[in-house]
Design a protein around this nucleic acid. Sequence first.
DNA 1: CTTTGTGCAAAGATTTTGCATTGCG
DNA 2: CGCAATGCAAAATCTTTGCACAAAG
Lengths: 159, 159
Amino acid sequence: MRKTRNRITKKRLLEEFKRAIKNKGLKFTPQRESIFKEIISTRGHFEIEDMVHKIRKKNIPVSRATVYRTLNIMKELGFVEEVIKINNKTIYEISVKEHHDHLICTSCGKIIEFHSEDIEEIQDKICSEHKFHPKFHRLEIFGLCDKCYKRSVRNNSKS
Amino acid sequence: MRKTRNRITKKRLLEEFKRAIKNKGLKFTPQRESIFKEIISTRGHFEIEDMVHKIRKKNIPVSRATVYRTLNIMKELGFVEEVIKINNKTIYEISVKEHHDHLICTSCGKIIEFHSEDIEEIQDKICSEHKFHPKFHRLEIFGLCDKCYKRSVRNNSKS
DNA sequence: CTTTGTGCAAAGATTTTGCATTGCG
DNA sequence: CGCAATGCAAAATCTTTGCACAAAG
């Protein structure tokens, strides 16, 4: 939904990234550009190996080392927020995109994104109660999507 | 607060773990017992190396391999919920303990735990809207604790 | 041109695994 | 005793780093 708006945002993000890189006296290389684009389009959910291969397919030579180094720069510059690993799968969060949270199916890995203004408000309240200064958050609800849930109910009744 | 109640819970948890292990035809060894205890007492926030050393200090021989293997068993049995890594730091969540969420200071690593019934309720609503069947969730708010926040304000005004 | 970036391969770090031995039940 | 668990060391992963060469500005 709202594809157009999304594309504009991506373009703008890339520009911001370019500016930030240069401001720091660093260089804007094809590698950094394509890595950044990949991260945006995968919304931060990707695996290093895949990213390397995808970028190489676009005829931009890139090494794992460069991906790691670029990710670190992006972290420093604040373009990606945090790195977590869930079962060897690296997940980065893009800071500038509209915030959303995740429903994650532990069976098939499906990720459903959602956003709740109510939750955001409560969080702000909690933070101020604890004198905590939030930068970003991550809310993940793990469970079964409807499909997997139904399958598991079927299987359990057998055992 | 409520230390006593806490200790009872730990003991009960250990009993449950023992039962579950045996039910599966597995063996309840000193290693597994001490690993389980460690996880409970650190509330899932620990590093593998530290755990190995702590347990060895109690004169129970243990290897990293055993810790990893035990963690996998505990995951299968549902005693720990998920494994995430934040900057090379492994965090496990104990499923049975009272649920709580985290405020995590990205500067000093301090973790403040909190619980909000309001958030739980909203989550349930969201899940049912998406036909999602939650098993557990994780809410982490990253930011700066008051101390680090004040320090960063001071430093920024210099640059 | 100068300085930073890149790839490669080696080094580190973390986690898993095969195998001989130990020990719970 | 028998089967599972353990420790060790080797292997498999994942990530970082040193260095020589390439390329952005």
